[in-house]
Amino acid sequence: MTALLEAKGLVRHFPIRDALGRAKGAVRAVDGVSLFVYRGEVLAVVGESGCGKSTLGRLLLRLIEPDSGTLHFEGEDLRALSASALRKRRRRMQLIFQDPFGSLDPRMTVEAAIAEPLKLHGLHKGRERERVAELLSRVGLRPELARRWPHEFSGGQRQRIAIARALASEPELIIGDEPVSALDVSVQAQVVNLLAGLIKELGLTFILISHDLGVVRQVADRVAVMYLGKIVEEGAAEALFRNPRHPYTRALLAAVPGQGQKPAMLEGDIPSPVAPPSGCRFHTRCPFAQPYCREVEPELDGLTHRAACHFQDSLPPAPPLREAEPDARLRHLQSFFDRETTP
């Protein structure tokens, strides 16, 4: 099976300059990331703030240029494409942002916003209006809303509009950068369900960049965990959640609230990405760190479930993910909500 998108050794540093514009170091946002996503797969990239996951998302679409590394889409070298060829290619790769308020032009009606990519790529010529109507109903909005302005919509509705706009160019790959993080829980559930449905029906490939492991558990087929600009663990979602191999992944999963109180596993804050620790970047916070970890940087190791930890095979077993007790009464009562929303 070949990957739809494959990145190798991506690096992107952002120089920090002093008042006179002289470089005085760099934020090592993405510091050697290799990643692939198969067609039709939902890959989640998770991590805490500053881990580089948003920068990675932009690098994967070549919205920003990597300092080094390679990038292939369906086997084609994206970095070798000319500006015009890249523009054509972009039609098939779209990005959805966290902030539905910032991502829509306030001076464009909904119809104009969704029709813009159609015009840009010359799609559905002469029947753009019908296509916009189709796209709106696809994301659960009434087509009559096409003439309205972004400010007339709630956050959830705006995110639906942003999704419709992303779908307009008929992409194969969508990258969602925290697409539901700004939404209230009840609205978030609507949008998560909508995205999951669209991915399935349209056979989309989706890269979900998220800090919310609850959302990731619901939708991801595969998960990559980032820490300080590197992927520290990557594997099938259920394998990774049930049997996390990297100490950071274990701590991250244990810290998610709602599983009963557990002693906090990690002390301190994430170190600065300007000067990441030597050797294994996690050694300063790792409860299992050995002197060797300070010296030698571990590589991702393993076949399908990979972790970048020298001692991943000798760590004490991870505390098991305790699955919530199925609650038949609650499920039954909650099913009434779904009946209500089925179109």
């Binding site: 829980v185 559930a189 609507q190 369900n193 999951a196 919310d212 609850g214 619901q218 709602g258 499920r331």
Partner: peptide, 19 residues
């Protein structure tokens, strides 16, 4: 609300969605 909130310790086919 309980059905809409995604949980790490529970994989659901679909989240309950309050219309």
């Amino acid at each position: 609300l309980l059905g809409a909130a995604p949980r790490l310790d529970e994989k659901r086919g679909r989240l309950a969605s309050i219309p």
